[in-house]
Computed example of a mutant assay.
Amino acid sequence: MFDTPGATGPRPPRVVSRRDALRYAGAASALAGLGAAAAGATAATASAAAPTLIDFAMRQIPAQDIRAAGHSGVINYVSTSRPGSSFGAKPITLPYARSLNAAGLVIVSNYQYGKPGGTAPSDFTRGYAGGISDARTAWQLHTAAGGGQSAPIFFSVDDDIDRDTWNSLALQWFRGINAVLGVQRTGIYAGINPCQWAAADGVIGNSRTPGRVWAWQTRSWSKGQIYPAAVLYQRIVSTATNPGPVVGGLEVDVNDVLAQDCGQWNLHP
């Protein structure tokens, strides 16, 4: 269905200062420790292979319930609810973020307002001007909740798009986002092909983990493949016919952490 992407290798990583390297090592160690705890947990939701982060929208899940389920943190929205909906976890709030931090959980930011067939169109259809507007909203909500000044925000392409749609719509949207945030603070959530196209077209930044870029890949539309440069992989996508695990009384999506630097706030203050 998709055209074969061109060269998809990540751009050379930026030089990291000694101070940043020490901060990275500390934060990465904390994430690895949580991953070890998850591996030893009896909860069925924990992945023994890698630390896991959960994402959800319906309401805020208490930090203690996330820890008890063996997860290392959350990917939370820095966007508001679409017209006619009221999602309690959109956007993340400062008190909730503080509760997660206090419990030793990490936070990664994601922006998604519209969706296919929803009351607002898919965000990527809004072009360059829409990208500018969405990036401004995302950054305001991210910083209001205490998000790191250098942390990336993952912007969602929650649809099965082809290369023509990428080139004519989504790419222009990402360039609008870049105009506000810069490439290094821009990430993508999508199936494997848009993740590769975003890296090849230079509109997403680099993780501090060598060879990794700000790509949060969903298993949807990925045909069983995992992009080697992705930092996160959405392994469980909760649907009405295939519900995800329950954490704090709410069905959630589960994401494997593929890099020590997956864009978590505490690593990018």
Score class of each variant (00 low, 15 high):
residue 253 D to E: 10
residue 197 W to E: 10
residue 162 D to M: 07
residue 195 C to I: 04
residue 148 G to T: 07
residue 161 I to P: 11
residue 250 L to E: 14
residue 249 G to T: 07
residue 222 S to F: 09
residue 239 T to W: 05
residue 184 Q to H: 09
residue 180 V to C: 05
residue 211 G to P: 03
residue 206 N to F: 02
residue 241 T to Q: 15
residue 172 Q to C: 00
residue 211 G to C: 01
residue 228 P to A: 08
residue 202 G to H: 09
residue 213 V to N: 12
residue 237 V to I: 15
residue 230 A to N: 10
residue 246 V to N: 13
residue 214 W to V: 06
residue 151 A to R: 02
residue 213 V to L: 10
residue 152 P to Q: 08
residue 226 I to N: 11
residue 185 R to Y: 00
residue 230 A to Y: 09
residue 221 W to R: 11
residue 244 G to A: 11
residue 223 K to A: 14
residue 235 R to E: 15
residue 182 G to E: 06
residue 205 G to L: 08
residue 198 A to C: 01
residue 247 V to N: 08
residue 159 D to N: 14
residue 238 S to Q: 09
residue 187 G to H: 06
residue 153 I to P: 03
residue 149 Q to R: 15
residue 201 D to I: 04
residue 186 T to F: 05
residue 147 G to M: 07
residue 247 V to R: 08
residue 190 A to S: 14
residue 206 N to D: 13
residue 150 S to Y: 12
residue 180 V to F: 03
residue 247 V to K: 04
residue 150 S to L: 12
residue 225 Q to Y: 11
residue 214 W to T: 07
residue 179 A to H: 11
residue 195 C to V: 02
residue 198 A to E: 04
residue 157 V to C: 14
residue 225 Q to G: 01
residue 213 V to A: 14
residue 202 G to D: 08
residue 253 D to V: 01
residue 165 T to Q: 15
residue 243 P to A: 04
residue 215 A to S: 13
residue 222 S to Y: 07
residue 194 P to V: 03
residue 178 N to W: 06
residue 189 Y to M: 06
residue 198 A to S: 11
residue 171 L to P: 00
residue 205 G to A: 05
residue 196 Q to W: 01
residue 193 N to D: 14
residue 234 Q to D: 10
residue 206 N to R: 15
residue 208 R to A: 03
